[in-house]
Nucleic acid binder design. Sequence first.
DNA 1: CTCTTTTACGTAAACGTTTACGTTGGGTGG
DNA 2: CCACCCAACGTAAACGTTTACGTAAAAGAG
Lengths: 336, 336
Amino acid sequence: MAYTIKDVAKKAGVSIATVSRVLNNQPGFSEKTKKKVQHVIEELGYEPNAVARGLINNKTHTIGVLFPELSSMLVTDFLNGIETMAHELGSSVIVCHTEADGEKTMKYLQLLNEKRIDGIIFVSAILKEEYYNYIRKMGIPMVLLSTESYSYPVPYVKVNDQHAAYSATKYLLNKGHKKIGMISGNKDDLIAGKPRIMGFEMALKDQGIAFTENNIIYSKGFGFQDGLDGMEKLMKQSPEISAIFAASDEIAFGALSFAYQHGIKIPDDVSIIGYDNLSIAEMAIPPLTTVGQPLIKMGKTAASMLFEMLESGNVFVENRILPHEILERETVREKR
Amino acid sequence: MAYTIKDVAKKAGVSIATVSRVLNNQPGFSEKTKKKVQHVIEELGYEPNAVARGLINNKTHTIGVLFPELSSMLVTDFLNGIETMAHELGSSVIVCHTEADGEKTMKYLQLLNEKRIDGIIFVSAILKEEYYNYIRKMGIPMVLLSTESYSYPVPYVKVNDQHAAYSATKYLLNKGHKKIGMISGNKDDLIAGKPRIMGFEMALKDQGIAFTENNIIYSKGFGFQDGLDGMEKLMKQSPEISAIFAASDEIAFGALSFAYQHGIKIPDDVSIIGYDNLSIAEMAIPPLTTVGQPLIKMGKTAASMLFEMLESGNVFVENRILPHEILERETVREKR
DNA sequence: CTCTTTTACGTAAACGTTTACGTTGGGTGG
DNA sequence: CCACCCAACGTAAACGTTTACGTAAAAGAG
């Protein structure tokens, strides 16, 4: 069994209060006893019990992160940013994957509540009323990452999806493309689906190009398979298209893959721009031009927002819209 | 402030001991008081404090996972498997990323020790003496994932790297290739580097083909850039090569990318087989033939081994060598 | 030198549980 | 009817800390 503060106190010939004081560097001890206590701590290899500390301080220095799925390629970077910042600020992170399932999410929330975590980062999923109410009752701060809530006052960090989609489309237009298609995500997804579609549509309209349902494919999700299927449909539906805006990098990979299988040359026959800038975007063949989100930065930002709330005690903090950026690589070609 | 067991006890008109008993379903209460207590619990929305429980039970139902880096594409799948199994068995997982830095690793271990986690999964890095001794002192079980220790008796789950590399090379030989090159990882890496090199070498020798230093490139790591550079060197060094064994999928992607940039047709000009079967392997262009590790399964296995040790109290449990598997896709072609 | 303040501690309660032990009351066997 | 047992509780200690409060000695003021 590990040593306790009592062992240290006894061996150093002081009370446990004194040991606690030097441990937390609180006033009330002489330089001499400090040395003595520290020496005993060193000697025994004593390390304080964070569980006991958590009990009395009502603080566990642990935060929870809820991902809808751990298989998405976004999570690596998000998690990376979150963990880095959290650790820098002295906290650990517990990961959960809810599989976008309401019941599982509630179970996780309950678990996190019982563990008395200090805060929650909720990633890439819609914040249902049930979740919000529960977390509210928990009385701990939360921030949304790569999602937002129209119904509840919860701070979030995101890029502006509509703007980013607008930028991507505009980029294609600037390259001289007129017939532009889109492989979108779910149009009923108000967070990542609809806004990107709207940005696409708006960019076309601003350029005086008619938006037609013929030029867009609505997928179920944002995955590779969606891109594969979407590309097939789009090519069949509107073969005259010269450029495509894919609503995610994974969709773009699917599109690239379909193109490869069917002898469509990218970017010679058709240009493609993705969305996300996953680390594998530059590994694609050809390297994927995409509108990038600062993923790691977003994770870090979410974490620091959470800690800001923890320290200040405020339940709210300013939202952060992080800038997107076009990464010019090799899947888009100038249209003569 | 959340309700405590006292609130429940008072409101139900019983002692806290009784509440605790119905909570943990321990004998010593009548059906009637059970109903009464449960009703109050429901009414107040009481949820037990896991921190207090952890203090008295010496069990936090939390495990720690140490990754060298969160950017590697392997972590997603490993983490997925670990988290799934851990959650199934009632535990949470804290992720750490050590950046393969000794000092940081020790800091993380100390943190995890203070948090009194139940066990540790140590992933894809060498277990230094310092780490081992510390964890040993912590007195909690640990298992190694995708790594092993020659010096210390720590159970691990891995695939047999040498066998897998042998299989990959053999596969190329069976396809009629005679001049085979390898882009390896670090040859001084006794875990993931050397064994794969040895498997490669052995397969060649078994087929009566001389192994020459000309046919192998030693990289620093297993990343994309290593593949990019490695491919360049290899093509310059041994242009007669018709097939390549890449020591990781990321290396293979780098090789693919280099080939694309320099007009080398895969698999027409040269065949490539990778190692890992990352989820993006099938998204590659062309889809990557590779020798796959059952990544999610490995994560799950590591977690269940850990819990087996926790339950049995044994400090050791049988190692698991999981089977690898050749995924035939489109980067290898039969040599006429 | 005396009185007051400050420093350097120690004592004990508190955090929210679990659990060993003690205490009832009703039931059973004889 | 008595002795006994067992089910159904309650009491209190324990887990390892932090911290309010008390106290003795040292330091400072006059």
